[in-house]
Design a binder for these strands. Structure first.
Ligand SMILES: [Mn+2]
Ligand SMILES: [Mn+2]
Ligand SMILES: [Zn+2]
Ligand SMILES: [Zn+2]
Lengths: 150, 150
DNA sequence: TCACCAAGTGAGAAGCGTTCTCACTTGGTG
DNA sequence: CACCAAGTGAGAACGCTTCTCACTTGGTGA
């Protein structure tokens, strides 16, 4: 059942972001736009970018595509921005987390910084830890250089 | 400026959860109810518990109290439940995170499982990490025993 | 090839958690 | 005690997300 959450390990942009769900022409457009995304984005921002590429695609369709991509493990929520969910394309399909640049919005997939002691189905002081969420915020290499000395 | 986010280190239930904000009679009631909370809670659940102790306190007042407690560092968001923010009382006032029992809702403050490599203002592969979020989910000791063999 | 129909779509309405507005009250300060 | 910034309650408003419904699409099997 984990197959639904595993995508093609070859390359950072799998051929489909929707798992086993049907890929309509609208979803193909949305997937192409998402693959071009290098930063975190909201549903509305994605809708605008999609409308720029192919006008007429409804907001509900964008939301439904986001749900499908989330279920497929291709997109994750990495925070909120003004009440809207902040989304990011997962560029790797193993267990990982995200580093969100608070300056340019770029998102980097990072290895799980939690050790074996606090990994899936591990024990911590008598408690059974079954899952976890980690998000790192900071400056990417480029933005770090840009603000050097500021 | 960090003083606003530091509370009395003596004991797990500081005398005020509101930092420097004014403590009205309504907020005193809300603070007492929150201190009795042993599980994560939503704003509506808190409002119901507050109404049980002292009817007439408005939902907006509960939300405003939550905001004040969050700014004071006494309450943190530990997830969502059906679209509502899940909140938890912070039982420690140093840098820490939370383990939420997915069965009984109990919340335990846990030490930051991230090492020095990924701590505040640390560097990771050229990126400057300024903050992070960590939430652990699993079963507390009691619930783990309750489901033994199930 | 073609009928079938589950899955997807678009537009707008609806839902719902949260915030805001406004007239009023409270409580700390001097 | 006067002052007034801060807080309150009720309900309206806001805004993100989901739902509804009639219609279309596209994968599957005969
Ligand atoms: Mn991890
Ligand atoms: Mn930490
Ligand atoms: Zn950046
Ligand atoms: Zn438990």
């Amino acid at each position: 059942m984990d197959a639904d959450h595993q995508r093609d390990p070859n390359g950072p942009t799998p051929s489909t972001l929707y798992g086993t769900a049907r890929v309509s022409v609208q979803r193909a457009v949305i997937a192409r736009v998402v693959r071009e995304m290098r930063t975190a984005f909201t549903a509305e921002e994605l809708h605008l970018a999609v409308a720029d590429a192919s006008p007429g695609i409804g907001l509900a369709t964008v939301y439904r595509a986001i749900s499908a991509m989330q279920e497929a493990g291709a997109v994750m929520t990495v925070g909120d921005r003004d009440g809207s969910a902040l989304l990011a394309l997962c560029v790797r399909n193993d267990h990982h987390h995200h580093l969100v640049c608070t300056r340019c919005g770029r998102v980097l997939g990072v290895e799980c910084p939690l050790g074996d002691a606090v990994s899936s189905a591990a024990t911590r002081e008598g408690h059974l830890i079954t899952s976890h969420e980690v998000v790192l915020y900071g400056l990417c290499v480029d933005c770090r250089e840009g603000t050097r000395g500021a």
